[in-house]
Design a protein around this nucleic acid. Structure first.
Lengths: 129, 129
DNA sequence: CCATTGCGATTACGTCTGTAAACATGAAGC
DNA sequence: GCTTCATGTTTACAGACGTAATCGCAATGG
């Protein structure tokens, strides 16, 4: 995800991320349809959504597809790529690049459910084969 | 960690975080000493550090202790609290509040070392008792 | 004593972000 | 055909952030 400055990857801001989630959930969508998805829960106006879409286009996170006089928007950036880079960024920034301290942190904060534990255990088994 | 707006917690920015790390590592420190810790690797000037310290004071993340004409700075915000809230924020924002998908994401990205896996397994055992 | 230094406080400025209005224009509706 | 509507584009503005210079002044050093 590079903009005009190849050295500093452009980040998707929190507000922009909400728009991405709507498009990851279902796309292509018009600006108006995106607003239907996010405006009520975020208390945004259509104008806000249009701005965010425009910025995401500039960041090449989404693509436009003309549909008459309007655009249909769809993601170029995969959700997994985004969550992956954000996750790695957190781990690198706060945990010296290691996931185990993050895991311990979440465990300590009682952020792990029984389901989480079971899933992780299954995955651990898989990974340690 | 609340500023003047109790509803929106103030975040520690990336640059501010680098200053916090220096103080978490060793404190109390003067502005000049903090600069010794971070200025070379970040290519910052003392002026930058002083600004960041001042902002952290305003955010009540650090405390000042007069020492003659200068201040000694030390953290008010615990590192664990910060990493905890940032971690939870990521999990809430991107993984529906669940840690297992995050874990799976990191695993998929080959971000887990053998040591990580061993540590997590140990912790899993502990948690599932 | 005077000049220099060091320090916190204040100021500066560009970019990004959040939120949205205003504008230009073609399509839709009456 | 004319008015209204919907849409993308442009503009707006405040606050946060990154980075740093400048200012005011007391302490330090020669």
């Amino acid at each position: 995800m590079s903009g005009s400055n190849p050295e500093k990857p452009e980040r998707i801001s929190d507000a922009e991320h909400a728009v991405m989630e709507a498009l990851w959930k279902r796309s292509p969508l018009t600006a108006s349809e995106v607003c239907d998805e996010v405006c009520e829960q975020r208390d945004w106006s259509l104008a806000t959504v249009k701005t965010l879409l425009s910025r995401l286009v500039a960041k090449k996170a989404i693509a436009t597809q003309p549909d008459g006089r309007r655009f249909l928007y769809s993601p170029l950036l995969e959700r997994a790529d985004y969550t992956g880079s954000e996750s790695r960024r957190l781990v690198d920034r706060l945990f010296g690049g290691r996931a185990a301290p993050l895991f311990a942190q979440l465990a300590e904060a009682e952020a792990l459910t029984e389901d989480d534990l079971a899933e992780m255990e299954a995955l651990l088994k898989e990974l340690r084969k």
